[in-house]
Design a protein around this nucleic acid. Sequence first.
DNA 1: AGACGGTCGG
DNA 2: CCGACCGTCT
Lengths: 258, 258
Amino acid sequence: MFDGKFTDASLLKKLVEAIKDSVKLCNFNVNESGLNVQAIDDSRVLLISLLVEPECFHEYRCDRSIVLGLDLESFNKILKQGNNDDYLTLTAEDEPDNLMVVFEDKKKERISEFSLKLMDIDSDVLNIDEMDHDCVITMPSSEFSKIVRDMKTLSESLNIVVTKDSVKFNADGQIGTGSVILKSFTDMENPNESIRIALEKPVDLSFGAKYLNDIAKAATLSSTVSLKLTDKAPALFEFKLPSGHLRYYLAPKFDDEE
Amino acid sequence: MFDGKFTDASLLKKLVEAIKDSVKLCNFNVNESGLNVQAIDDSRVLLISLLVEPECFHEYRCDRSIVLGLDLESFNKILKQGNNDDYLTLTAEDEPDNLMVVFEDKKKERISEFSLKLMDIDSDVLNIDEMDHDCVITMPSSEFSKIVRDMKTLSESLNIVVTKDSVKFNADGQIGTGSVILKSFTDMENPNESIRIALEKPVDLSFGAKYLNDIAKAATLSSTVSLKLTDKAPALFEFKLPSGHLRYYLAPKFDDEE
DNA sequence: AGACGGTCGG
DNA sequence: CCGACCGTCT
């Protein structure tokens, strides 16, 4: 039996909002280490790895591992019905047919209760190797989001070039070209506004703007995002949760498809 | 060679935002007297005349007259990428293929650089006669904007009747009729809130609400707008810039099409 | 149903 | 000046 209660619904609402455009169906795995999702986006390019540790919950209980096969669009319909600051409780039996979703207003004047039918979903078993990266950039997620959104209007492909003290985003399209250079800097007053670059080796990689755009939808989950880049290897875009993370893995484009 | 730098990007952002819905393609002419645009809207009804004098720029240099043929939608995509308070620099060669657009954050930690392809655009050579008007109304542009926006929901045509000490906006449509009367008055504390009427001769004119709506998009550029009206002649709607102006000329509807 | 633009609030 | 929310359009 699984029973998890969030102090407020906003975290889960944002999580599902962030990934529902990439993945229609996926398994939420709950066990003693928390809520875990491993999924590949519908175009089989973007890999999503979510971990919501028990500390994110106000109360968390999960005796044994349970798989919740969810249609995220349906799940989102239900989640949208709760207010951000409602209590949110998820419950499922050991062999569940349904996921129970309960919102409670903090004044306790309203209780909304839903039962969502679960599905059997083939789960790709994903092995994600932890690896070292040539460089790690940490920047405000809102800034990442704006760059991706803006540059997407110029080109389908976004090139990222990192040097010791700067990261440059380039787009080259029909109507013209554009680049944004961010210099590494530390904002003492608002540390989350800082641009941090930890570089082992300079990188020059290009990514599909569509996928970066899907990734940028997670920007509301954390004030910063880390871009972990390695030459000729999938990049990792990481949003830290209060306890846990939402990670996206995206392979760069090769030279001949840029 | 043309090189113009704005202390902040907001002026040009607002200008292009204001006219892009009326004109898709137009020539920006730069020369020693500033940036000049003469254009007719795509439905060939509304005439737009923009003058941004060198004083609007922080730095301005233009040796000889250069024509920049712009797709305003593309230009706007680029301008949207800069923040309002960024420095904005425009640069072009003497026989330019591209317009360079550079935004710099005032903290200098971010530089965004764009190259926009230019186009050859047939320019209507427009001769606009300076003329006297039967009356000149000056009013807050936000108030003008609200009246136009609201009245457009009632009718496709907006009638303006000016007397010595009042201006009346009338709409007559399917669901009913409406009118807004503004009395001439002077607000000592906030002069821009005043309604001023300088009247040679009373006027009673009607205009297409659609075009007034396009004109009203310029309201963000200036806290006041002047309506210069003459019987049976094109009206002039003028927004003053820090140094220069954005003017719209619009012919009134004739009696039989009101 | 999703995306874009505009408006309102912090 | 920036971000979030609501409404409209595709």
